[in-house]
Design a protein around this nucleic acid. Structure first.
Lengths: 325, 325
DNA sequence: GTTCATTACGGATTCCGTAAGGATG
DNA sequence: CATCCTTACGGAATCCGTAATGAAC
């Protein structure tokens, strides 16, 4: 058994069972791949791929298990390379972050600025998406860390660490009737169509639960992944916005008013998600510390070693005060 | 990076950092090992071993991490080989079991008999030891499964599955005063010096807790790992024995009397310990099913996938009745 | 007929083992 | 001086890529 053989198995599975495509992607010849696959199957005494004549059509049950183990092995191989690169002080692979629009637009810029200032050589990739897309990216090992706030049930296989509390504001045009009420009630809000994040409603999330508990079912005018889009429609009078407090800036949005809503909705917590039991590259840890100063290397290492968790706040030492923004 | 190189790193560490010894054990030449080690270090750009001149004296911090990951990788490689051997119906490696004397002597014989009858080709190795030795064997991947009853705190890194409840009897010579009491009290027992298992006392185990809760601190005459040894000293009048009920056989021990003690001590549970997240070979599963019929393949697979656990009974579906013996 | 995997073969590389060299205690 | 790792070198095995072959859609 050779690492190269396992690599080929993974590549062929990834390329929808095309040996040619796998060879192409690996910059090697197709007969070479074919031969190594056969050699591995001979050594193991089991067919790993289902074949229709000479065509590869899928994996056998054994192939499936081997594939899972091979992927695991390559995670570790990659960890070895990463930790060696860290130790040797070599420039390492890009830091890949997956997050939602709100984080990327409002929370991350200052962190990114500081990170790039102290780590000039490092390339930073920010992938933006909806929570389900983030979960997929993390699961396929496409990113080093995920920053998310909603739909935590999608991240059950990750180690989650809490970063800060946040809450919502009600965004209305400057001349809106609601501006007279300094502390609007849920009932008053529910009079107007709402404009909010796609993933904030449906699936019994906080907004649904809060309105539902008050016996209200507000009309959703439209949802967007993007606070800027939400603001646009609020300006057009399509409804009132419910957005993260951090995304309102009086200087940027002089025609809008933000009414506090933290008396209506309970605090949410923004989380970092990491793949458990993996080596954490130095730059990843540095980024985490810049984003959430209380997440020290020791604490993060302990959480990663402990595996997936569904109670992020429990990873903090008792008495830790989480910031809010 | 090659599997062979990682294998060499592990072997050198295992042989107390002797390259020659590692080469010997691997049936290859010493310069070959030396060269591959250097090649790996060159590729990674990090020294993995501490050297004093040309002598290997230990590992560097990076070497330590690489070593841990390499061992992990080889676990999976071994899993691939095992599952392929199972699928191909080849005879697989010996089934290695680590357990205590009481299990090996009284609980296992009938299981082993049935196992060998249905699996004629399989070699069975039973390692016997104290709980701490069992834990060490499991941790070093020397055995496939551990069967233990005491000192569960030593097995925190294993997946534990419950097999059956058991309890103790009081063993006394036929003419002993206690034989007049059909249900002796703790206080009556504590009048006499005790002879029991080494690992049953100390460290706040069940015997300590039970006597302690009654305000008693009995004198321990002697402890042994071995029920047969305990019986010998009971016969000599050195004290009264507290042993597992299953180890008393009226036919074998006509000169001894066993007084029930399950009204004094709470039931203990015998457990199987497995390394989590590892492939479970067919023969291992078969042995488990013979030993504890309620531990079905699906149930065991789910428990292994769930990782280490410290509440074995929780692995069973609700309502399962555990046998007692 | 086009696509795709297998087989065949020649060249380059890698790998292993023996032998010699140098450092350590 | 005995032990142990490193370096040097020759032979064997492996591996890769090109070309030809055969099966499938």
């Amino acid at each position: 058994m050779k690492l190269r053989q396992l690599e080929y198995v993974i590549a062929v599975a990834r390329e929808n069972f095309s040996v040619s495509a796998a060879a192409n992607r690996l910059f090697t010849s197709q007969p070479g791949v074919s031969k190594q696959l056969r050699a591995l199957e001979d050594e193991l005494g089991v067919e790993l791929f289902r074949r229709n004549g000479r065509q590869f059509t899928g994996v056998t049950p054994e192939g499936e298990q081997v594939l899972a183990l091979a992927r695991d092995i390559f995670s570790r191989v990659s960890d070895i390379r990463d930790l060696a690169a860290d130790a040797a002080g070599r420039r390492s692979r890009p830091l890949r972050i997956a997050t939602t629009h709100t984080q990327a637009r409002y929370a991350l810029p200052s962190v990114v600025e500081r990170f790039l200032a102290t780590n000039p050589g490092v390339e930073l990739n920010i992938h933006q998406g909806t929570p389900d897309q983030l979960a997929a990216l993390a699961r396929q090992h496409e990113v080093d860390l995920v920053i998310a706030t909603e739909a935590l049930e999608l991240f059950t296989d990750l180690t989650l660490l809490p970063c800060y509390y946040w809450n919502r504001v009600i965004l209305v045009p400057r001349d809106h009737p609601l501006t007279t009420a300094s502390r609007p009630t849920l009932k008053e809000i529910a009079e107007y169509p709402l404009v909010t994040y796609v993933f904030a409603v449906g699936g019994n999330r906080l907004l649904d639960r809060t309105f539902g508990a008050a016996g209200l079912s507000p009309r959703i005018a439209l949802t967007a992944v993007d606070t800027d889009v939400i603001k646009t429609y609020v300006r057009l009078g399509m409804g009132i916005g419910i957005v993260a407090g951090m995304s309102y800036d009086p200087a940027q949005d002089p025609d809008l008013v933000a009414l506090p809503a933290d008396h209506l909705f309970e605090d949410s917590v923004t989380l970092i998600g990491l793949r458990p039991s993996r080596y954490l590259r130095r730059h990843v840890q540095e980024f985490i510390s810049l984003f959430a100063a209380h997440l020290t290397p020791d604490l993060v290492a302990a959480a990663i070693a402990a595996g997936p968790n569904n109670d992020p706040l429990a990873t903090l030492p008792p008495g830790t005060e989480l910031p809010r923004r």
